[in-house]
Structure formats: C-alpha cells, structure tokens
C-alpha cells in the first residue's frame, strides 16, 4: 500500500522540479477564451503581442488560451471561466455575456472598430479532390446521396453561420418564400450524418476520418485543411452566395478588472487591429479589415457575393431568436 503512494509522491516531486514554475512579480497572465478554429491564429498572435508588450512596457505577458465551440465557451465564461478577453465566433454569444452574466456593458460592440470584429471570414464548401460529386453551389447539397458535414448550431458559432448562409441562399432562390426556404434547409440537414459540437470537430470528421462529400466550413478552416493538412486532397468551392461572418472580440470587464488586467486586455485587442495583427490574421486565412493589408492579400481570398447578418437577418439577436432558440426554425426542421 505504501509503495504506489510513494511512487506517486516521487513522480510528482520530479515533475514539480522539472516543470517550469516561473512566477515572477512583473509577469502578467492574460486569459483569452476563444472559439474553435482560431488556435493557430492566436498561437501566432500571442507570441507577437508578448514581444510588442515587452518592448513597450517591459512587462512580460503570458497569454493562456482556451478553445471550443463558441456557444459552449460563452457558457463557460458565464459560469465563471474568468477570461480577460473573449474572442468568439458571433455577436450573439458575446451578447450572452452581458445578458446572462452581466460581465460586460451593453454597448460592448461599439468599443472597437468594425463592430468589434478585427477580422472577418465567410462560409465556403470544401470538397474532396477532383470534386467527384460535382458540387458547385448550395443547390447541390440538397440532392439525395450527398453527405454534408457541419457542426451543431446549438453549440457552434460556425454552424450558425453555415445555417444562415444556406438560409440566405434559399431565401433568394425562392423569392422570400419561407415555406420553401425551410424545406430547402431541411433537405440539406437531412444529408448531415453527424453534428459535431465545434467547427474543429467537423473538420477532423471530414479530413481525418474521411466522412462526408462536402464540409461546410469557415473559409480560414477550409484553407488550413487544404493547404496544411492534405495538400492537393481538397478543393474549395465558393458558392454563388454566402454570408459575411464577423467574429467579435471584447474585454470581459468584470474579470479583467478583478485581475488588474484592464489596460493590457484592451491593448491586446487593439493590437489585433494593428498592421502586424492584421498581417497575422491574413496569414492565418482570416480576411483583414484594414484596407491596406486587405489589398496586399487580395489575391489570397476568392471574390464572393456576401450578405450581411444585419441587413439580411436584422442582426444576431433576431436571427438567434428566429432560428436557433428552443423551438426556432432549426428545431422545427431538425426534429421532423
């Protein structure tokens, strides 16, 4: 009975010596709670910001990150995951921090430029090499026998953008006929064999497990899969109409204040808008909002016809209520 305990104690002692435990007085620790596909982006950006902040103030800042489905992450922050900044997939999830958690002021979205979205993206279709099922547009996804991969809109921000993009397409196609639009999206969902909780889970399902003919994906996630995971194995199909996805960022005032991190958290988000921050975003396949950087990377992003959430759906609050709340169109369609 004594031996395993002793062994555990010994192992623990060894690891506590070898694991770096550098807790110096001037160290700042910042927690960024983000959504699923931003892992690579923030890995690069955190390193750049640490360097910038060290040069500017002499303080060493270590940024910790947590990633997951956007809705799930918002829920965790409301439950007390004490993020200094939240960088989520869509405005509704950030609104929840205000409504359910009282963690941020009501006018949070006006605090930073471009509706607090330093980078944007859109939804594209990722297909296997040579496009064997000949998928060109949203129309092709409702055909029988096509297997579509998308995450669950209840937990994933990307999935909600996917859903709305399909909805916007159908609405236009059927001249705002709601019944026909619903039927179209319903047919599309019937072709989905598995709903993962986050965008990254869906990408893994499609890329690694080889399930599905087409992945509805963030543009950045599709580029990543195409250029870094399976070179030449996938092709991006730009649909005739898609949605402009604006993933917003905010300081979580209540927690940042508690940690004494207000200034550095604000600077962290502002740095996303800087030349370097925008370059990093573009290199990670997010569309930059800065004109000059956008121009520089113009050729990287396909030209697409993008509708805006505010114009097409009357903003996220309304879209969420109509489509994704309990009993919304998603529930009506999916439970059929």
């Amino acid at each position: 009975m004594k031996k395993p305990l002793l062994a555990i104690a010994l192992l623990y002692a060894v690891f506590s010596v070898t694991a770096p435990t550098t807790v110096l007085a001037k160290d700042i620790s910042l927690l960024n709670v983000s959504y699923d596909p931003t892992r690579e982006l923030y890995q690069d950006f955190n390193a750049a910001f640490s360097k910038y902040w060290l040069a500017k103030t002499g303080d060493k800042v270590t940024i910790k990150t947590s990633h997951g489905g956007s809705g799930k992450q918002a829920r965790a922050i409301i439950d007390g995951l004490d993020a200094d900044v939240a960088t989520l997939a869509l405005a509704y999830d950030v609104d929840q921090l205000q409504e359910k958690g009282k963690l941020i002021p009501k006018d949070w979205q006006k605090r930073l430029g471009h509706n607090s979205s330093p980078y944007t993206s859109t939804i594209v279709l990722l297909v296997r090499k040579g496009n064997p099922k000949n998928i060109k547009d949203w129309d092709d996804l409702v055909k029988p026998g096509i297997s579509v991969i998308t995450p669950n809109p209840k937990t994933s921000g990307g999935a909600r953008w996917n859903y709305l993009a399909a909805w916007a397409f159908a609405q236009k196609k059927f001249g705002n006929d709601e019944a026909k639009t619903k039927e179209f999206v319903g047919k599309l969902l019937k072709n989905v064999p598995v709903l993962d909780t986050g965008a990254r889970g869906s990408t893994t399902t499609f890329v690694e497990r080889g399930i599905g003919d087409v992945l509805l994906a963030w543009e950045n996630e599709a580029f990543l899969a195409q250029k870094e995971l399976g070179i030449g194995k996938f092709e991006i199909v730009v649909p005739s109409l898609s949605i402009l996805a604006e993933p917003p960022v905010t300081v979580v005032d209540k927690f940042a204040k508690k940690h004494g991190n207000e200034a550095v958290a604000k600077a962290y988000l502002e740095y996303l808008y800087s030349e370097e921050g925008q370059e990093i975003a573009a290199k990670n396949y997010y569309r930059p909002t800065s004109q000059s950087v956008a121009k520089k990377y113009e050729s990287q992003f396909p030209k697409s016809n993008l509708v805006k959430i505010d114009e097409e759906f009357g903003g996220w609050q309304k879209a969420q209520k109509i489509h994704f709340s309990d009993g919304g169109t998603f529930d009506q369609i999916y439970q059929k």
Binding site: E40, K64, S66, H67, E228
Partner: peptide, 22 residues
C-alpha cells in the same frame, strides 16, 4: 476544466487538444 492550456488541462484533455490541432 475550462480547457486552459498549461493551467487546467489534464493529460486526457491535453490529448484531445493536440489531436484537434492536427
């Protein structure tokens, strides 16, 4: 856990994160 790397990740959670990062 909250999945904060280097802070609240246990080994099984770390495996999942690494896998999801390809």
């Amino acid at each position: 856990s909250g999945h904060i790397r280097g802070l609240t990740n246990t080994m099984p959670l770390h495996v999942e994160i690494l896998y999801n990062e390809y």
